[in-house]
Structure formats: C-alpha cells, structure tokens
C-alpha cells in the first residue's frame, strides 16, 4: 500500500494543563502522532471522524500513549517510525525540468506527471541518508530537509554553491568517466576473473573497495552503496531510468536551459 493510502490517527488534546500536556505531547510526538492542542472546552469538529481521537484531560503520558496505540490498532492506522521520512523535495522555483535526477536515480523515486514535469513519486523507495541525486542537480533544486548541511537541507542557495564543483557533480565525474561504461567494464572484468579464479571473497573485496571510493567522493552512505544491486542490474535499471527521462524530455515543452 502506498504511503498516501495508509490511514493515520490524529489526536486532539483538550483541557490539559501545561506540564502534563508537555509530557504527553513529547511521548506522542516521539511515536509519530500528530496532535492538535486546543483550548476549546467543547471540541466538536471532526470528533466523529474515525481517524481522530479526542482526549479530554490527560491523566498520564503513558496512559495516553496506550490509548492512542489501542485506537490506532483498532482503526488499522499506520504505525509510525517504521519508515524514516527521507526523500527528495523539489524546489520548483529552481528546477529546470532537465530530468537529470530521473535519469540518475536507480530506485524509481522520480517520475513525471501528466504534463511531463518531474516529480517525486515513490518517496519510500529513496535510500535513507543518500543525497546523491541532489548532487547531480545542476540548479541545487533538490533538497533533503534532514540532511546536515546547506543548501541540500533547504538553506538558501548561494552563487558559491552553484559554483562549487560538487554541486554540479555528474555521476560520471564520481567515477572518473562514464559510470555505465565503467560498470560494464567492471562487470566484464569481474566475469572474466570469476571464471578464472572463482573467488567470491576477492570479488567482494573488490566491490567494497570500489564502493568505499564512491562513498568518499559523493558523500553517499556506504550502506546504501552496499545495498546496490549487481552491476548488471544497475545497468539495466539505469537504461530504464534514462529511457524514462528521454521520453519525458521529448514530450516536455517546458525544459529551461
């Protein structure tokens, strides 16, 4: 089920004194709930909505959390925290619809809408802590709000950011050449070596060495790189992504150079 289709539970707190409210809220927020704090004593709006739990007065934060968890389970709402919300956010003030991100991403995060405009379609397919696509964007239009530094975290983009080589980095630059041909070559070399040596340990070490280099160059978490599919599958996925981007560009009258 997609994120958009999952049911969520919202809580409404009324008549809770400051200190109790604070502890209750902390607990609920840490567990992913959205909480409306109201001063209305007679809160009615949406109270008959099954996704809303109205709580009048707070006895203890533990009891409240238990109550929330019970209701959540009863209405089959999603359990928060199982997915860390890490995904690209596009700044359309900067985006030129160049499709580099679509072409780059191997995990199908990006797509195009009915007007062939780039959009983030599969947020939960994004690899946690990986900001690689934002480095491919020539306009610094891709943000990851939970990233540590600007402008990827949403801080204002400066001229210096755009000038900085790493902001405009191309995946090929990461590897000192065309990544796809490099992967192809590496795959061919590996196949030839495997056929001679049949040494999976050596192969793994080689892959790890390569991935560590990539991680250092592109600030990509090693665990993301380790989770990448085989070179053959990468090539196949890259071709699919490139074809999608090419088709979108062909159909898009709006690309800005």
């Amino acid at each position: 089920m997609s994120l958009k289709d999952q049911k969520t539970l919202r809580l409404v707190l009324t008549e809770a004194p400051g200190a109790k409210r604070y502890h209750a809220l902390q607990k609920l927020l840490e567990h992913g709930y959205t909480v409306t704090c109201t001063t209305e004593t007679n809160f009615q709006a949406e109270s008959n909505h099954s996704n809303v739990l109205v709580v009048t007065g707070v006895t203890s934060s533990e009891n409240l959390l238990e109550q929330a968890e019970t209701t959540r389970s009863q209405i089959e709402a999603v359990k928060h925290g199982e997915w860390k919300p890490w995904f690209p956010v596009i700044d359309y003030d900067r985006c030129t619809n160049c499709m580099q991100c679509l072409s780059f991403c191997l995990f199908g995060v990006y797509g195009v809408d009915q007007n062939h405009k780039i959009e983030v379609q599969n947020n939960d397919s994004c690899k946690t802590n990986c900001p690689a696509c934002s480095r491919v964007c020539p306009e610094a239009a891709i943000m990851f709000p939970k990233y540590k530094t600007g402008p990827i975290n949403g801080d204002a983009v400066t001229a210096a950011d755009l000038d900085r080589e790493k902001m405009k980095i191309d995946i090929s630059a990461l590897l000192g050449g065309d990544v796809y041909s490099m992967l192809r070559t590496r795959s061919e070399r590996a196949q030839s070596r495997f056929s001679k040596e049949r040494d999976p340990d050596k192969a793994l070490k080689e892959r790890q060495r390569c991935l560590v280099k990539l991680a250092e160059a592109g600030d990509i978490p090693p665990e993301v790189l380790m989770a990448l599919p085989s070179p053959e599958e990468i090539i196949q996925r890259a071709e699919v992504a490139k074809a999608k981007a090419a088709a979108a560009l062909q159909n898009s009258p709006q690309q800005i150079s």
Binding site: L3, A19, L29, C37, H80, P85
Partner: peptide, 23 residues
Amino acid sequence: LRKLCDANIPFEAVADLCELSAR
C-alpha cells in the same frame, strides 16, 4: 514545545512534517 504548552494556546504539533508531506 514546553513554552507552547505552558502558554496554554492552541497549536498543532506534528511529529514530522516530512512524513506528512510524503503521505
């Protein structure tokens, strides 16, 4: 958060705006 609670004013507290946006 503590100051908002002590002020006894209405407000909306969300665990994570990113998650709400994705959903």
